[in-house]
Amino acid sequence: TLAAQLVKDAQLPVMIISVAGYPTGRHHTLIKASEARLAVQSGAEEIWVSVDNTIADSNTHLSELIAISEACPDPVQLGLIAPLSDAPTHPAAHAAMQAARQAGFKRIISRQGSPELAEAASPLEFHVVDL
Rank of each mutant, 00 (worst) to 15 (best):
I16S: 06
I16R: 13
I17N: 02
S18V: 07
V19E: 01
A20H: 02
Y22F: 15
T24A: 11
T24L: 14
G25L: 08
G25N: 12
R26D: 00
H28S: 09
T29D: 10
L30W: 00
I31M: 05
K32Y: 09
K32D: 02
K32C: 10
A33R: 04
S34D: 07
E35K: 04
E35R: 10
A36F: 08
R37V: 00
R37Q: 14
G43S: 05
G43L: 01
A44Q: 13
A44S: 15
E45G: 13
E45R: 12
E45A: 02
E46M: 10
E46V: 01
I47Q: 08
I47M: 10
W48G: 01
V49P: 10
S50P: 15
V51T: 15
V51H: 12
D52V: 06
I55Q: 03
I55Y: 05
I55F: 07
A56I: 08
A56D: 12
S58M: 14
N59G: 03
N59H: 15
T60P: 00
S63E: 14
S63R: 15
S63F: 13
S63D: 14
E64R: 09
I66D: 04
A67N: 01
S69K: 05
E70L: 14
A71K: 03
A71T: 00
P73W: 07
D74Q: 12
D74W: 12
V76Q: 04
G79T: 11
G79N: 11
I81H: 12
L84D: 02
D86S: 09
A87V: 08
A87K: 13
P88N: 04
P88G: 01
T89M: 05
T89H: 05
A92M: 07
A92N: 09
A92I: 10
A93R: 04
H94Q: 10
A95S: 13
A96L: 03
A99P: 14
A99E: 00
A99C: 10
R101P: 14
A103C: 04
K106T: 15
K106E: 14
K106C: 06
R107V: 06
I108T: 04
I109C: 11
S110L: 02
R111D: 08
R111H: 11
Q112T: 03
Q112V: 02
S114Q: 02
